[in-house]
Design a protein around this nucleic acid. Structure first.
Lengths: 193, 193
DNA sequence: GTCTATATGAAGATAGAC
DNA sequence: GTCTATCTTCATATAGAC
């Protein structure tokens, strides 16, 4: 493990600052100071404050999409697949609470072009959830009328925890993930969950 | 129905602007222009931009707390009570999507004192949900191990819809509220929901 | 690649006429 | 209570030395 580069230190400082204060309330001075540099140093490594946000947002979205796709491919059993999907998706938002907060709540601050790009990732993530639920319905294992609405509800549950979750609090990421995985199965009508 | 006062017009303009852009990205010029006034007019009716936010946030929180308390008192039956609670809480967030967005996502922009005040409202709302779930567990109607976590999950589901819900989209507030009420009952282990 | 110094613009809020 | 004009502060981003 080598030292992080200045570029990487600035990204991590930006995640911290954006998560705590929000993009618009964060100053480039705040970011560079957290990274232990002068205000000007930021622009040697990143073109603008928005570019920093885009970096965080785009990697974060790609990450979560890859994760749910991997889970989807990992099993043929609808119950185990949905359980693991909600478990991992929930856990990611708790473990990476700061990054997740930026990913989920600062989309409006991106340029229109960057916003369109992440919108694509988001559509794809929802599609994987719909596929996972739809497969269970097709096999007669799940009892769901509104597949799309149920997918949105499960995603919402996991995403919203970045609004209130605190790493210092009593709950572990795994504890919440377990609970939310159970709630996901109950939501699709698997009664012995 | 008389004309809204300038004061009220400014509050409504602020809700619109804060919901679309966020508190920090909104300028006082934007608010006053939306209300059809000059930048200076805002300060005749409101002390500051933060005071406008506080007005929206505090009334919104008081509103939702009163609503869930009313629902709690309206029935003794745990199933009907929780169903109605999730229905009304969800519907409120869809119907008042812009106001709800400001209420739920701009807490960090309040002054510490104002933030403490709304934190109290939020604790109380969670408590009503915990009571509603706990009562069903005590009566042996609900099957829930983690009452607090389940309450948070149900609240999260409803709150998060302000992030994606669009009045122009295909879903009605009542349609989402029906679905989320059903999901709430399934979450507490009422299997014929 | 880092710094100090600064250009440039725009924000929140106020002054003072009507 | 509304306006125009403006004060003051602070933000993003750049210039240029080392």
């Amino acid at each position: 493990m080598s030292e992080p580069t200045s570029r990487q230190r600035l990204i991590e400082a930006a995640i911290e600052a954006f998560a705590e204060r929000g993009f618009h309330a964060t100053t480039t001075r705040d970011i560079s100071t957290r990274a232990g540099m002068s205000p000007a140093a930021l622009y040697v490594h990143h073109a603008s404050k928005e570019q920093l946000l885009y970096e965080v947002s785009s990697f974060g979205h790609a990450d979560t999409l890859a994760m749910v796709r991997e889970v989807y491919a990992s099993s043929e059993d609808p119950v185990e697949r949905l359980r693991l999907m909600q478990y991992e998706f929930t856990r990611w938002h708790a473990v990476h609470q700061q990054k997740a907060r930026v990913v989920q709540y600062e989309i409006a601050a991106l340029t229109p072009e960057h916003r369109r790009e992440v919108a694509g990732y988001r559509r794809d993530i929802e599609q994987v959830y719909r596929d996972a639920i739809g497969a269970g319905v097709d096999k007669g294992v799940f009892d769901v009328e509104d597949v799309r609405g149920t997918a949105l509800a499960l995603i919402s549950m996991a995403i919203d925890l970045v609004r209130w979750y605190q790493a210092e609090g009593p709950r572990t990421p795994e504890g919440i993930a377990d609970l939310y995985a159970q709630l996901a199965l109950r939501a699709v009508g698997v009664s012995d969950a």
